[in-house]
Design a protein around this nucleic acid. Structure first.
Length: 277
DNA sequence: AAGCTCCCCAACCGCATGAAG
DNA sequence: CCTTCATGCGGTTGGGGAGCT
């Protein structure tokens, strides 16, 4: 059951906008502004349209600063990078591309850029859409773990006790603010394998035998690096946090994004940390 | 030329959020 | 607090143009 419709669908025109309607809306908004109320705007402007439809038409097409036409290579790069970092938050991605709307970026990604990246080999798998809206990148389980294997992100998030143990160490689901597993893994691997950088994390094991990634296309090295014999076992949670923080959050300029700080206290607070987002 | 398929993108839909009363 | 409602957002749809047979 959705909420009630915002207008009487029987009495409003739907479908493509005519040039006359465009002219009326454009003229009205340029003269009077929106008045902060799209719902009442069509009536005032003399349009038989839903306020939502007017808003969309203005924002996506009529606004004077809209950039029409093809995307540049530079814009492609920005979209690709941000998609890997934050997933399908099209409005955030569009905010980094002057003159582009979220609808534009979304359509462009779905119809062209995705294919282009596949054919060029830059993307080889599609990410699990579940991960793109979640606030962490994945979980790591060892044999004998107390957590069931194969939890979906929302299930793990709903389970406040996603902490588990093996004979060496206590592990936690790692929160990463919607970054994708692929993204984190790639960044970690590239930094770790770079001899020019000393991140003090050198003992990356082979793939662990019982890793569950929420993104099934990407499990081994990330889970392994975070698990037994990897970061957690060798360095403790504070150092893991420092590393992740450096990788993921240091230069994040997303509007409204607050640089998180390591939760003080014990491991449990770390485990619980992302849940208040 | 006609019919069909594919692709693009404008527009719609329903849900989440937050402000206002 | 609770309810209502406008706005913003991401997912989805479908009309129509382009290209192919």
């Amino acid at each position: 059951m959705g909420r009630a419709p915002c207008c009487d669908k029987n009495n409003v025109k739907r479908g493509p906008w005519s040039p006359e309607e465009d002219a009326i809306l454009k003229s009205y908004v340029e003269t009077y502004g929106t008045g902060g109320n799209w719902i009442s705007l069509p009536k005032k402007a003399g349009l038989r349209r839903c306020g939502k439809s007017c808003r969309l038409r203005w924002l996506n097409y009529l606004r004077p600063d809209i950039k029409h036409g093809g995307f540049t290579e530079e814009e492609d790069e920005v979209i690709y990078r941000l998609y890997n970092e934050i997933g399908t938050r099209w409005s955030v991605i569009a905010s980094r591309l002057p003159g582009r709307t979220d609808n534009d970026v979304k359509n462009y990604w779905n119809t062209k850029l995705k294919k282009k990246l596949f054919s060029s080999g830059r993307m080889t798998t599609m990410m699990n859409p579940n991960i793109l809206s979640s606030n962490f990148v994945g979980s790591y389980l060892t044999e004998g773990s107390s957590v069931p294997v194969g939890l979906e992100p929302q299930e793990v998030m709903a389970n406040q006790t996603h902490q588990f143990h093996n004979k060496y160490e206590t592990y936690a689901v790692l929160p990463c603010y919607g970054r994708t597993l692929n993204n984190v893994e790639q960044e970690m691997c590239s930094i770790i394998s770079s001899s020019s950088q000393d991140h003090s994390f050198t003992s990356i094991p082979n793939s662990s035998p019982a890793i569950t990634g929420v993104d099934s296309t990407s499990t081994g090295s990330f889970g392994g690096s975070m698990g037994e014999g990897g970061f957690c076992a060798d360095h403790g949670m504070q150092q893991v946090w420092d590393f992740v923080n450096e990788l993921l959050f240091e230069e994040d300029e997303t509007p409204g994004f607050d640089q998180p700080s390591f939760p003080t206290g014990n491991l449990q607070s770390f485990v619980n940390w992302p849940m208040n987002l």
